[in-house]
Each structure stands twice: as structure tokens, then as C-alpha cells.
Amino acid sequence: ESETFDVELTKNVQGLGITIAGYIGDKKLEPSGIFVKSITKSSAVEHDGRIQIGDQIIAVDGTNLQGFTNQQAVEVLRHTGQTVLLTLMRRG
């Protein structure tokens, strides 16, 4: 069981404050995608409180990250504006 949710964030001096990890899993058993690996102290993400380590980032400002490499996803996140809309999925 999984839930998908949107989080809109405004960057602070730390930026968004997440590091991400790309993961290619076994299609049947484990998900592939871009996941939140860590959250920086005092960052926008930590202050917001809704995003957790292990959440999958589905889209950034409407750009679907399906099939993106870790590096491609980093580039998408790097080129966002001051306000960012993240679409995430959390597995229950």
C-alpha cells in the first residue's frame, strides 16, 4: 500500500535540504526510482516536516522522474526556482 502526496516548499539558505539516491531494484520485488536519502538540519524540508527519508520523489515541478538517473534527478532539482513542488510516494 502506498500513498502519493504533494509538498510545496520554499527554499531557504540551505536550499531544499535533501540528498537523493537513485535505486534500480528488481522490478517485481523492489521499486526503482529516486529516493530521499537524507535531510539536512534546519532545511526547508526539515522545517516542513512532511517528507521522510525513504520517500520516493515521483516528480519535481511536474517533471516526472520515472527512468531518470541519480545525476539527471540532481540536475532537475538544481534548476528549480525558489518555490518547488515535489510529488512523493510513501510505501506503507
Rank of each mutant, 00 (worst) to 15 (best):
Glu3His: 14
Thr4Met: 10
Thr4Ala: 06
Thr4Pro: 06
Thr4Asn: 04
Thr4Glu: 07
Phe5Arg: 01
Phe5Ser: 02
Phe5Ile: 07
Asp6Pro: 02
Val7His: 03
Val7Asn: 01
Val7Met: 00
Val7Thr: 04
Glu8Ile: 12
Glu8Cys: 12
Glu8Met: 13
Leu9Thr: 01
Leu9Glu: 02
Thr10Asn: 11
Lys11His: 06
Lys11Glu: 04
Val13Cys: 15
Gln14Pro: 07
Gln14Met: 15
Leu16Ile: 09
Ile18Cys: 05
Ile18Ser: 01
Thr19Gln: 14
Ile20Glu: 04
Ile20Phe: 09
Ile20Asn: 01
Ile20His: 02
Ala21Gly: 14
Ala21Glu: 15
Gly22Tyr: 15
Gly22Leu: 07
Gly22Asn: 15
Gly22Ser: 15
Gly22Ala: 11
Gly25Ser: 13
Gly25Met: 09
Gly25Tyr: 09
Gly25Leu: 06
Asp26Lys: 12
Lys28Glu: 14
Lys28Met: 10
Lys28Gln: 13
Lys28Ile: 13
Lys28Val: 11
Leu29Ala: 15
Leu29Cys: 12
Glu30Asp: 15
Ser32Pro: 10
Ser32Leu: 15
Gly33Ser: 05
Ile34Trp: 08
Ile34Lys: 03
Ile34Val: 10
Phe35Gln: 07
Phe35Val: 07
Phe35Trp: 06
Phe35Ile: 13
Val36Gln: 03
Val36Phe: 05
Val36Cys: 04
Val36Tyr: 13
Lys37Ile: 04
Lys37Thr: 08
Ser38Tyr: 07
Ile39Leu: 06
Ile39Thr: 03
Ile39Phe: 07
Thr40Glu: 15
Ser42Asn: 15
Ser43Leu: 08
Ser43Ala: 09
Ser43Glu: 05
Ala44Ser: 13
Ala44Asp: 10
His47Glu: 12
His47Leu: 15
His47Phe: 10
Gly49Ile: 02
Arg50His: 05
Arg50Thr: 07
Arg50Trp: 01
Ile51Phe: 00
Gln52Phe: 07
Ile53Val: 14
Gly54Met: 05
Asp55Glu: 01
Asp55Val: 02
Ile57Ser: 01
Ile57Arg: 01
Ile58Ala: 03
Ala59Trp: 03
Ala59Lys: 09
Val60Arg: 00
Val60Phe: 03
Asp61Val: 00
Asp61Tyr: 02
Gly62Arg: 09
Gly62Trp: 02
Thr63Cys: 13
Thr63Asp: 06
Thr63Ala: 09
Thr63Gly: 03
Asn64Lys: 11
Asn64Asp: 13
Asn64Trp: 06
Asn64Ala: 11
Asn64Met: 11
Leu65Phe: 08
Leu65Asp: 00
Leu65Met: 12
Gln66Thr: 11
Gln66Ser: 12
Gln66Arg: 10
Gln66Phe: 09
Gln66Ile: 09
Gly67Ser: 10
Gly67Leu: 05
Phe68Val: 10
Phe68Ala: 09
Thr69Arg: 04
Gln72Val: 04
Ala73Pro: 01
Ala73Leu: 03
Glu75Phe: 02
Glu75Thr: 09
Glu75Arg: 08
Leu77Arg: 02
Leu77Ser: 01
His79Val: 08
His79Tyr: 06
His79Ser: 15
Thr80Tyr: 01
Thr80Asn: 00
Thr80Trp: 02
Gly81Pro: 05
Gly81Thr: 05
Gln82Asp: 14
Thr83Ile: 07
Val84Met: 05
Val84Thr: 10
Val84Lys: 01
Val84Glu: 04
Leu85Gln: 13
Leu85Thr: 13
Leu85Glu: 08
Leu86Lys: 02
Leu86Phe: 08
Leu86Tyr: 00
Leu86Trp: 00
Leu86Gln: 04
Thr87Tyr: 00
Thr87Asp: 00
Leu88Glu: 00
Met89Lys: 14
Met89Tyr: 13
Met89Gln: 14
Met89His: 13
Arg90Thr: 02
Arg90Lys: 05
Arg91Ala: 09
Gly92Ser: 13
Gly92Phe: 08
